[in-house]
Design a protein around this nucleic acid. Structure first.
Lengths: 327, 327
DNA sequence: ATGAAAGCGCTAACAT
DNA sequence: ATGTTAGCGCTTTCAT
């Protein structure tokens, strides 16, 4: 069927061992025979069977990525960062969406392991830490942090703080925080930090709970204006939710930013092409993805990590859903 | 290191062959010994090495998906449809983004093949058909069509036609088509169909070229209002571009839908949470993804396909970027 | 510098 | 009904 190392060996008139050595630049092989081997490979268009390789070496070119939901626009950027770095280094990405179900995540990890993936990148919340620890496989957390694991994440505290400071600076005195699920590490930290700042400044604070999806945002928006119609500033748990809230506000005839101002979180690309442009806290998702891939490969190659945790800065991107702030 | 079939055999006091048979429900194995084997598996927490399996069977649990760019919000839905179906059947997804580069796509396919993927789902444009044909691997095109391959796609002609009819029905007489790259099969078909209808109704037609990304949309929007300021209706190649155009229109003080109406394409979820809501042609992306996975598995299992091409209907979703049409 | 052969973990003949 | 064994395609000792 497929061309194997045997065929190449025969064609080149050498043994399979020599072909293997030539292929992997491993051990001595005479320049002439190397050439003969390479010619044969070319001629036959031979591609090594990675599965056979993997069986022997117990390694592979696969990295497993498990994320909550690729449909949430923050994650494709993360994933692209990971993939682009990996692709350049000759590795491949297996993806699993866990939908916040711990068993699904767990099943994906098992499946990945059974296929000799050589590393894992995890950006979900319900992480099965003990499973990861037992697996003894290079792992990096992405957009999440935990003590004992390498992690790449953005400064959520700073983000929450910044958002609160800015909404105050642009004149809001009655702000509603649309908070994500408590179980989600990132959005919860943003909430805590923002709350703290608001409290310090003696701003009136109201809280609405929301899921991170766009349906969640729509529903939260409706509740928000029903329960706290006098809100003059909104801090949303992410941009999707923020955009849904802008929609509802506008639909109700509230002017943005004159009547209500709003700040999102993430800076998904939609935030810049929506009207009015959404002011938001930008996380460098793509770069974070790249970094995660980079330090994963370092671990795989037994290189020392300069540190365990890589915290990326966030920044405030001012657009038109807020008034020009007094700096 | 890892627990192998040998360990299980020893623990259960049988041969590896028996374990294998019990594991795969293949051949005779006494109820009692099956029980003993299962107990041993449980006890040792044994998970078969899929790589070894794959080496022998020349199969695997991997499906390769190559798409243009997961960052384009249409594709995550497609991918989720694929993944959800696959996951339920015990298969896994390897993803590659080709960025419209034929060589990248080609490299991904080679890499997938080397790893014994048992099927391919392709939703890119620069498809290396001859490579696919040589590979003799079950393949389905998703969001694309070609003569000799199973394909799942939406009715682009109908979509383009519908969009044009609706923009006319809602009163536009001078419409600008913001057209995607000619090399993209889907958007080109939409364009052709829409153009045809507009022409028939003797509507003034202008054309602006755009890429499918949000930057492309922003740039196109600016050119559009510079070159054709009297436009009263816009047909955009996809929703991202449409939303970017709405932004620019609103920014310039044009009222939507009073001054300009606009219809997008895809119905990405943002279209419903943006203000004003974007009228658009909906493609059932998630279902299409599922279907593609389904017929791919059918092929893999040597089942007959009822037909080669699965064309999904599209539908017009009216929101507030168009005036109520006269039906 | 090169070849022969063992073995990675599994499945499937082939025996019994 | 179960065990023995060859072999999937590769890499790596161990000889030579």
């Amino acid at each position: 069927m497929s061309i194997t190392i045997k065929d190449v060996a025969k064609e080149a008139g050498v043994s399979v061992a020599t072909v293997s050595r030539a292929l992997n630049n491993n051990g001595y092989v005479h320049e002439d025979t190397r050439k003969a081997v390479m010619d044969a490979i070319q001629l036959l268009n031979y591609k090594p069977n990675e599965v056979a390789r993997s069986l022997f070496t117990k390694k592979s070119k696969f990295i497993g990525l498990v994320l909550p939901d690729i449909t949430n626009p923050f994650f494709p950027s993360l994933a692209r960062g990971v993939e682009d770095f990996l692709y350049a280094e000759g590795y491949h990405l297996i993806i699993g969406n866990s939908d916040k179900q711990q068993d699904k995540e767990s099943e994906y990890i098992d499946a990945f392991l059974q296929n000799n993936v050589i590393g894992l990148i995890i950006s979900t919340d319900e992480i099965a830490y003990n499973k990861l620890e037992k697996a003894k496989i290079p792992t990096v957390l992405l957009d999440r942090v935990a003590e004992n694991f390498p992690a790449v994440y953005a400064d959520q505290d700073e983000g929450g703080t910044l958002a609160a400071e800015r909404i105050i600076a642009s004149g809001c005195r009655c702000v509603t925080i649309v908070r994500g699920p408590i179980s989600v590490q990132t959005t919860y930290k943003r909430y805590k930090a923002a709350y703290h700042v608001l409290k310090q400044h003696q701003i009136e604070i109201n809280i609405i709970d929301s899921s991170l999806s766009f349906q969640g945002g729509q529903e939260a928006a409706i509740r928000l204006f029903e329960e706290y119609p006098h809100t003059d500033g909104i801090l949303a748990c992410n941009d999707t939710v923020a955009i849904a809230i802008m929609n509802e506000a506008l639909r109700q005839g509230r002017k943005i930013p004159e009547d209500v101002q709003i700040i999102g979180f993430d800076d998904i690309y939609m935030s810049s092409i929506v009207y009015p442009g959404l002011s938001t806290i930008q996380q460098p998702a793509y770069e974070m993805g790249k970094k995660a891939a980079e330090i994963l490969l370092k671990q795989i190659n037994q290189e020392e990590l300069s540190k365990l945790h890589f915290k990326f800065p966030v920044k405030y991107v001012e657009r038109n859903s807020t008034k020009k702030g007094v700096d």
